[in-house]
Design a protein around this nucleic acid. Sequence first.
DNA 1: GGCGACGGATACACATCGATACAAAAAGCG
DNA 2: CGCTTTTTGTATCGATGTGTATCCGTCGCC
Lengths: 246, 246
Amino acid sequence: MEHIDHILVVDDDHGIRTGVVDYLRKNGLRATAAAEGREMMAQLDTSAFDLIVLDVMMPGDDGLVLCRNLRSGKHRAVPVLLLTARDDETDRIIGLEMGADDYLTKPFSPRELLARIKAVIRRTRMLPPNLRITETTDILAFGRWRLDTTARHLLDEDGTVVALSGAEFRLLRVFLDHPQRILSRDQLLNLTQGRDAELFDRSIDLMVSRLRQRLQDDAKEQAYIKTVRSEGYVFSMPVSVNGDAP
Amino acid sequence: MEHIDHILVVDDDHGIRTGVVDYLRKNGLRATAAAEGREMMAQLDTSAFDLIVLDVMMPGDDGLVLCRNLRSGKHRAVPVLLLTARDDETDRIIGLEMGADDYLTKPFSPRELLARIKAVIRRTRMLPPNLRITETTDILAFGRWRLDTTARHLLDEDGTVVALSGAEFRLLRVFLDHPQRILSRDQLLNLTQGRDAELFDRSIDLMVSRLRQRLQDDAKEQAYIKTVRSEGYVFSMPVSVNGDAP
DNA sequence: GGCGACGGATACACATCGATACAAAAAGCG
DNA sequence: CGCTTTTTGTATCGATGTGTATCCGTCGCC
């Protein structure tokens, strides 16, 4: 199954925002728009993104502030490409110091933007993760289990290894990244596979069922993953990170 | 004593070459020129450089080939900034993964070049120093193994030597250079052999299988190399460099 | 309690991957 | 050079992972 890169375009100017989104979609990427910072954060919580295109000049929190906030939050690993208005070196230097991965000065050609987007994604993909800001921590503990996100498997209290398939691992990590939150099947599909649900798509139900089996989570008791009828699923157990108190 | 960044400018066009070198010097950097690949390698052997500016379009070995050679040789750690002609060449660069750190399309403003040079240098400097030398290191340790990149063979904990074929060694080094990253078969083919996959090409699967045999990795549990169905493979174990703590 | 929608479980289909066998190509070696 | 040995790619078959279809239990609503 092919992964399609998903870009989040953040710009207060409606024309630029929709223009960029349309252009990216025409060129085979997924693209979503956000008009300002709060909307950006909301999108980041519900979908997985491969890159954020961020305008520097915006009312309210400007792009530099947002960029810095991003870098200290949960989505620190997502690459950022800044759009700077002037040919002003200070903005760009500050931007790169704030942790942006590239920048482009307005006005820009869509072609150039697309090329830079692809280049940044490629570049960050190739970097070994210890060289970048790490997205997730190594060990996520919950109940009697620990998930080793490096080795991509589960450990029980004795340290016994339980292997996970790729899809199971991704699903569990999404749950652990969003504990105590109802996640719809749409969101789960988006966050695990970056694709949208088709009609009568029940593959998520299946994956949940298989994950429950691995966790020996009885669907009746549902200690870990609770079903919320007609809404989705919740991971309903405290998760501790790298040995912190839960 | 203060360190002044030293840039190597490689371009066959005499005007660009000297123009860039002059501009960089006027802005407080050291700069050295080279007209083609052999001269570049000679310079690299006699001086230390902080970055290489490399033209893609050159007679003889072009910049892409030189870049790939750089990345598999002694000077793999030096950042590279590519200069490309304005046409579709950028796509080609992105498609090929030769590990450039940034690129700039001609014609460019000297200001822009300088800004990007500084950005790339800053970015690589910000990386933890012990990890940056990964590229030039001799011994890479993981699990119960050590890979000697000079002798091109494996050592187990007793020091027993396990020989590797050329392809096995290249594949393992690619994995160790990019741990915890999902690498597609395309990427692995590119990085190990510099060629693209044909239809129904399963040579990478074969090499992975053979490498697993060498590592006595049974592909089920606690594996070094995990398969991610329909995406590729991950090296899923911490790698330490020249005896550092993992 | 009865009805309908939703979700769990099972079975199955299909694609992908691992392992083995074998052939072609490359590298040693006299 | 010709032969052997090693390495590397192709072909094939069985095993495994993941999605679709189906049946059936259960929950909520009237």
